[in-house]
Design a protein around this nucleic acid. Structure first.
Lengths: 164, 164
DNA sequence: GCTCGTAAGTTCTATAATGCAACTTACTGA
DNA sequence: TCAGTAAGTTGCATTATAGAACTTACGAGC
């Protein structure tokens, strides 16, 4: 049976996963951020099989994360580049990287990110858009928004205290 | 053939995905943040099949994201709860949610998050840990860290400008 | 003209993973 | 005794993935 789609779920996490939640997808996006643009480069750097890479690239293009630009005709050859929509995946990718650095990098982080503006090694801190204080899941309460379509917070067990 | 593991890749994004990158996993984590703890509640809220749910819960427990706590014997019944390590997934989950809100929520966000400290609706802004300025991928430069094991930035095409 | 190399896929096959329903086990409460 | 609840497990049909080989279309060197 076909793997179940998340598209009908009234949840933005599910919507993200529908676009970029398949196996390999965020690694393709990572390499795109690192400047990789060619089919064979993705294939060799990632060790992904060619048929799966074809599918993933098509899916990302369909959803506007990548564009396919010919850099020559005869024979037709293409670059795959992040769109503006694709570049907004950076906070997600970075949060994944920082989690991996924290819990699965015994020899230290594989990558160090430097903030060009201040010239220093940088980690992203998540602060409140309103008061500017650092956020943790404990300080947050979830409630239904306009796009809720009824369900996410419905039928939660009474013992639940939705934190995010 | 067995799906390829990301464990040997010297990349923290890959390490995150190894733990929480499978289909369904982050939706289970989302529901855990919302206070869901029981097998049948996950099953019904998500529409995930029971055998796959069993596998995913076991995987998350193995990696220390969830714990399985008996809340009664005879018959044995369990709560699945986030560990401290699991709760550090919040920035990732939240970044996914905000991306979905931005690009795939035509009727408005399904969920509104309120910051208990200031009492206002809140979005996470990612700021530099050193200078406090908001970060974008354009301001960042990646370089090899102590755990690099040679490869992530090696063999990048000359045209590449690694931004993150 | 012939062969090699490069780039970007496509096709083929074996093995895993998924979805779904039904079944199992061990109670509790009416 | 019978129905209901909770937490899985099992079996079957269908997809998805990995890996290698094949295809197409050119350019360069001999």
């Amino acid at each position: 049976m076909r793997r179940k789609s998340f598209q009908e779920m009234p949840c933005s996490v599910a919507q993200f996963l529908e676009v970029a939640g398949e196996w390999w997808t965020m690694l393709i996006v990572r390499d795109a951020f690192l400047g990789v643009t060619r089919f064979d480069d993705f294939h060799e750097r990632l060790g992904i099989s060619r048929n799966v890479l074809t599918q993933r690239l098509e899916h990302l293009i369909e959803h506007g994360v990548l564009v396919r630009e010919a850099y020559q005709d005869k024979p037709a050859r293409y670059d795959y580049r992040l769109t503006d929509k694709g570049r907004t995946l950076w906070p997600v990718l970075n949060a994944m990287r920082q989690w991996g650095d924290q819990w699965a990098a015994p020899d230290g982080p594989p990558l160090i990110v430097t903030h060009a503006n201040c010239g220093q090694p940088s980690t992203a801190v998540h602060v409140c858009s309103h008061c500017g204080e650092p956020l943790t899941s404990h300080d947050l309460r979830a409630s239904a928004g306009p796009g809720a379509r009824g369900s996410l917070l419905d039928g939660l067990p009474r013992r639940a205290t939705p934190s995010a």
